[in-house]
């Protein structure tokens, strides 16, 4: 990991791009910087792009789940984007479900979903739910 965690501000949202290998020190740094940024900018949502990670194993999966929990505690939504087919199969085989984590194919779709979610919140309050 580079010394600076690339965090990009996109309107009310943050895009965090993770790259290379994650070791304990890097994980600590990411958690610190992401939580700092979310709190400082009052971000509505955080997109975490994992397509650049060298490995995505059960350790990294736990790290990501933890990061998502922290973001939620700070009042923002979190979405993981860029999980490849091979990684998805591996995670399922490992039994790592990341069950309560939102996912999206790419950053753009993730943004779209976050936006819809926000609009959906309003419609849900109005009683619309297509799950009927």
């Amino acid at each position: 990991m580079p010394d600076v965690v690339p965090i990009m501000r996109m309107g009310p949202d943050l895009l965090v791009t993770l790259q290379g290998d994650l070791d304990d020190r890097a994980v600590e740094q990411i958690e610190q910087e992401v939580t700092d940024q979310v709190a400082r900018t009052s971000a509505r949502a955080v997109l975490v792009d994992v397509s650049g990670l060298a490995v995505l194993d059960s350790f990294v999966a736990r790290v990501l789940a933890r990061l998502v929990s922290m973001v939620r505690l700070l009042g923002a939504d979190a979405t993981l984007v860029g999980i490849s087919p091979a990684v998805a199969i591996t995670l399922v085989e490992l039994g790592v479900s990341l069950r309560h984590v939102n996912t999206a194919l790419n950053a753009e779709q993730g943004m779209g979903r976050l936006r819809r979610l926000r609009e959906g919140d309003a419609s849900r309050w109005a009683g619309h739910d297509d799950r009927g």
Partner: peptide, 17 residues
């Protein structure tokens, strides 16, 4: 409906799976 109306797609993909 999910794709075009875009209603609740994130919810579908994530939280309740």
């Amino acid at each position: 409906r999910l794709v075009r109306a875009g209603a609740d797609a994130a919810d579908l993909a994530g939280r309740h799976a």
